[in-house]
Nucleic acid binder design. Structure first.
Lengths: 208, 208, 208, 208
DNA sequence: CATGAATGAGGATTCATTCAT
DNA sequence: TATGAATGAATCCTCATTCAT
């Protein structure tokens, strides 16, 4: 179809790199050095750059996979009858990923990554979240002014809320996720005091 | 008479450094370079290290001041009759500080700082928050299992929730603060699904 | 006048760096590494970047000094009565510099440097050469269609002509300089077969 | 019968590599990466090293071919009656090659290549140039002290003279070639001020 | 025999910290 | 005492060459 079959060792090393990158980015955030990822994969630094033309590209490859999985999860949940429950399940799954993966949380919660593919995947995630949220709104399961972008932002916020506890209490996020569930649940009629965000903006160039 | 009086310019420089550090850390986070702080203070880099033995020490001195101010705010609010309103006011004030000060939020929300003084100041803040929260609990204004540490953690979470929006919408945090208010308000009787944190633990030494 | 007096050791080190850079660039061309220049100066790599914000900046500082000296030489020679002799002396001085300094020749003969100051200094050099050449043209000492840019280009060409010989015969350039003198001398009336260049163009981005 | 016939695809690949190398070296100089040459040939990098033990070896093979072609051109021109015209034609052809081929010019004008074959081919070229030049000298078409090595060196010099102009004015070399013709033409009796070079010396090992 | 994957030294640049002036 | 100069480890990335497939 697409040409020649990649060599088995290259496939293996690419996988090793993605795994090592995923593990290392997850544990330490986007700041890890290429050297460390390479060492973690048991490969040379140069090999990283053979497979991914820059650190950002490697990060993007890993993030894209995770973003798409999350979109899939959301899509699957669209078939559920209980839209409120589906949204809760989506958020539960997602927060777990945010908690497990420091880099993922950094990328989604503060999209300083410039690669268009990642931007688009985040946009897809927001859309999927919006679809889930819209159904929950229609069923009266959540407040009428809650949006998909709100939901995505809340995931990052919940993770950060629990962050200082996670080393000692890996499940502590459940407490704050539940608080968030209560917060977004349908309420008599009080609208939120600030209009919903339109979309996740790209980070401008940061001073310094 | 061996205790010498500090020279007046030394006092002045220390103040300049604290001001410059506060301003710079606030805008750019804990990652700013010492060079930039020194320049912002109109002083030399060496002077920073004469007054503070490390970057962390300077950061700590600034954070201590802010932490104590926040403790004072909380203490003052204890005199209010409406404990629920007092807690809300405390949280509103605090979130604004978190939003204004990147470094403060980083330090409180992820206490990677090792200095005991900062730890203790954060503990004092949590205690003050706990006192406020306890009164609100007693008055039935918030759920019975909400703690002061929850409140402190939520501040960081709210700021992070709004973070991607703040550049374009500086008041967006109000939306998520309101959600949090709803989340922590008294509820029929559902307890949160995970026990409250005892205290904010210190980060273990972070690799890298 | 301009503020504080620079520290004597900084002055010394800046001089050391300029000397080391001049020596090293001269011998090996613009491709030398910063590490080597630093070592040649007996200083650390970081010190180079304290004094010059990039390798190109250091190179420019050195080249600017040399370019201006050459412009001065040309200006002084404008007072000579014998315009043809003055031009010859200018070219003789200049070729010696080209021969001694690989980087200078690379910068002038192929101005891939982007810094405007260097561009402007090269332009000044071309103007000075044009003034000298114009007088020689008026006195009939050189062909009527010879320009200052021709002269500058010829300097580079003469150096490259002699280049393979210079290690063994450091004065070999004199042979080809004399040939060039003959070539540019006034001739009955044959115009050169291609129009004179207007100015030295900046290198466009090179493929690869 | 132990000498095996090379496989036909090996022959083809060698040819592809020589063609790709010629094209790529010509456009970008000796600095091109092996990767680029391989890609240009539609082959793998490893294949380059199977056919040529190093980048220099490949470069040498290509340069040898071009050098020998130029020797042939010179030899053919020996049959012309007008020795001065023949020399001019040789130089015109040669300069065009120098202009078209960055690497060729780099190798001939600065023979940093260490391989004896290239040295010998350059020597052959110088001899052919000497033969042409000798006839021109005898016919009084050029100065009596002009040598073949002078001629070869001038080719490189002319190309470098025009170099900064070539991107915008591909024919600008004609201007400086004409100047060189004038310079080497017979003159009353002034000898050049520096003795002719005996041969093109090999560069000593260049530091760096 | 052909491939392209892996390697690792080397290059420019940044910054917390130390120390001479 | 205040300064800012000097340091060098660390970072991302390139490329000639080697070698497993």
């Amino acid at each position: 179809m697409t040409g020649t079959t990649p060599r088995s060792d290259a496939v293996r090393n690419r996988r090793l790199l993605l795994e090592a990158g995923a593990r290392t980015f997850a544990e330490r955030g986007v700041g890890v050095s290429i050297a460390e990822i390479a060492q973690c994969a048991g490969l040379g630094k140069g090999t990283v750059f053979r497979h991914f033309s820059s650190k950002e590209e490697l990060l993007a490859a890993i993030m894209l996979g995770m973003l798409d999985e999350l979109v899939d999860t959301a899509t699957t949940l669209l078939t559920a009858d209980d839209a409120g429950g589906a949204l809760r399940e989506f958020m539960t799954e997602s927060v777990q990923i945010f908690v497990r993966d420091r880099a993922f949380c950094e990328v989604v919660g503060r999209p300083s990554i410039q690669l268009p593919q990642v931007r688009e995947a985040i946009d897809r995630l927001c859309e999927a979240a919006e679809t889930l949220t819209a159904r929950a709104r229609e069923q009266g399961a959540v407040r009428p002014d809650l949006t998909g972008v709100d939901v995505i932002l809340l995931l990052s916020g919940i993770k950060h809320t629990a962050e200082p506890l996670l080393a000692a209490e890996p499940q502590a996020w459940r407490r704050y996720l539940e608080l968030a569930f209560d917060g977004i649940s349908s309420r008599a009629g009080q609208a939120l005091p600030y209009p919903p965000p339109g979309h996740l903006p790209l980070d401008g160039p940061r001073p310094g």
